[in-house]
C-alpha cells in the first residue's frame, strides 16, 4: 500500500509518502495507524492525537473503521483548512 502524509503530519513523520506491504495485523485504517505508530518515534508523535487524524482511501474521505487492502492509497492528514 502507498501511504501519503500531508501538512503537520507530513512534517512530523518526516516524509511525504512511503510504501508498505500490508502487515497481517492490519485490516482497517485504525489498525494501520496503530502499526505506523510503531515504526518510529516520529510516526508515533505525529499520529498520536487520533481525533485530529483524517484519512482518505484511494482519494475518497474515509473513517478510521474503513477496511483497507494492499493495493490501496491511504492518505493521512489533519482536518482540512482550504477556502
Amino acid at each position: 500500500m502507498l501511504i501519503k502524509y500531508f501538512s503537520w503530519i507530513r512534517e512530523g513523520v518526516g516524509k511525504a509518502e512511503e510504501s508498505l506491504a500490508k502487515p497481517s495485523s492490519v485490516t482497517t485504517v485504525s489498525d494501520l495507524l496503530d502499526h505506523l505508530s510503531g515504526v518510529s518515534e516520529q510516526h508515533s508523535v505525529a499520529l498520536k492525537e487520533r481525533v485530529f487524524i483524517k484519512v482518505a482511501v484511494n482519494q475518497v474521505h474515509a473513517g478510521h473503521d474503513a477496511v483497507i487492502g494492499d493495493e490501496d492509497e491511504i492518505a493521512i492528514f489533519p482536518p482540512v483548512t482550504g477556502g
Binding site: 500531508f6 501538512s7 474521505h61 492518505a75 482540512v80 483548512t81 482550504g82 477556502g83
Partner: peptide
C-alpha cells in the same frame, strides 16, 4: 459550495 469546500477539499494552510 464554499461550506462543503471548506470542510472537504484537501487543502492545508500554513
Amino acid at each position: 459550495l464554499m461550506d462543503y469546500l471548506k470542510s472537504n477539499a484537501p487543502f492545508w494552510k500554513k
